[in-house]
Design a protein around this nucleic acid. Structure first.
Lengths: 218, 218
DNA sequence: AATTTTCGAAACTTATTAGTACCGTAAATG
DNA sequence: CATTTACGGTACTAATAAGTTTCGAAAATT
């Protein structure tokens, strides 16, 4: 089984949310942090990652594009990786949730075609870069799973679980396997690049999964 | 399969094998290349890649473990990547081909459980490292596809095509999609690491694929 | 024996980049 | 206005690693 569920999602270096309305007292006396610059840094990091890949996403390049100082970056993040992880988190937070159509086939088809649309857009390179980096950096691997993979899977599983409860899918459906069966092939083409990520491909994978799901118990 | 039964996949800059028994004329005058050292270098490269990942597979580390000189490496390979690609090629050439059981279900189940056994062994890290490197290096991406992905897929497809011809699978089966449907989920778990690569997982994916394949046209 | 080519070892050059330190200035508080 | 903290810019340090060169010795040919 999985060794997830151990919580621990927040990196320690992020300021924890503090209660109370007295922001001034929290900020202390001096010049406050430039939140606009923070946004520019995160945006620049992700843009460079998209355009030039992980190896070329240097601290200098981020600073230059953001119109910020490298010192500002290291003032707020402990290292370069932390910038990219936080940038990914903000990017993921803007993703729209899955539609709930009430129909198993439509749910799965829409999930996969939406996902392919996401990956073939500019942001596909972000996921490629993160998965690549995760292979040699455990911190990236954890972050990618916690920030992207796990929430996405839980959301998708929740939808399918509803179909199980309401009797449209067999009770013994193994949702973990189903998740990998429908998303794994798409990630595989993204990463190996041996064949294109087309709508037809998404449709083929969805059809196979649906045939397996709907014909199994009966 | 690879085209390495005769010329043993020599890089172009090496003198091609010429016919005739006159080996002396081929070699020229000086000390001949140390083929044993060549083997040690390739083995060392792959071992370090397995143990320490791509980032730590440095030219110095390879030379040290091989008991060779870095100058010898660069005497025969244009760069570090070429060493790793040739090492992968030799490794792949030693893989045993798929068994042909004559039964669709057994064929697919054995392919997947063999593949998981391969990936969970020492060599799983090799594939992880290559796919990761491929994301930022087009040369690696091409090499990985040509040396590993493509031959493997063609071999697996050939087996399934036989089942189509002999009527055990529908004639309109899209083998490209099927390949990704059964191998994609395994690569996905290997690379994302969100769940373990177990025999049960292979069995679940195989079962789903078989239900889709065998229940489709009918 | 003379010549040619390779070998291992090690020093070396060159390039890149993460992260730090310092500057004068800007924006906040008290 | 004095103090505090953050800012952009830039120079700097330190570490790493790819690839080259040099050297004396080894293994081959002629």
């Amino acid at each position: 089984m999985l060794q997830d569920l151990n919580g621990r999602s927040q990196p320690e270096y992020l300021p924890l949310v503090r209660e109370g309305g007295d922001e001034a007292a929290q900020r202390g006396r001096g010049r406050p942090r430039d939140e606009v610059a923070r946004g520019r840094i995160l945006t620049a990091a992700l843009e460079i990652l998209e355009e030039a890949g992980f190896a070329n996403t240097t601290a200098d390049a981020i600073a230059e594009r953001a119109g910020a100082s490298k010192a500002t970056i290291y003032r707020w993040w402990p290292n370069k990786g932390a910038v990219l992880i936080e940038a990914l988190r903000e990017q993921v937070a803007q993703e729209t949730p899955f539609p709930d159509t009430g129909d198993v086939a439509r749910d799965i088809r829409e999930q996969l075609s939406d996902f392919i649309a996401l990956l073939t857009g500019r942001r596909g390179r972000i996921f490629k870069a993160f998965i690549a980096a995760a292979q040699s950096d455990a911190e990236f691997a954890d972050a990618f799973r916690q920030v992207w993979i796990r929430p996405r899977r839980e959301q998708a599983q929740a939808l399918l679980r509803k179909h199980i409860v309401e009797g449209r899918l067999p009770a013994d459906t193994d949702l973990e396997v189903v998740m990998d069966a429908i998303y794994g092939p798409i990630y595989f083409r993204l990463l190996a690049g041996h064949a294109p990520l087309t709508a037809e491909f998404a449709e083929g994978i969805a059809t196979m999964a649906l045939q397996a799901l709907l014909n199994s118990g009966v």
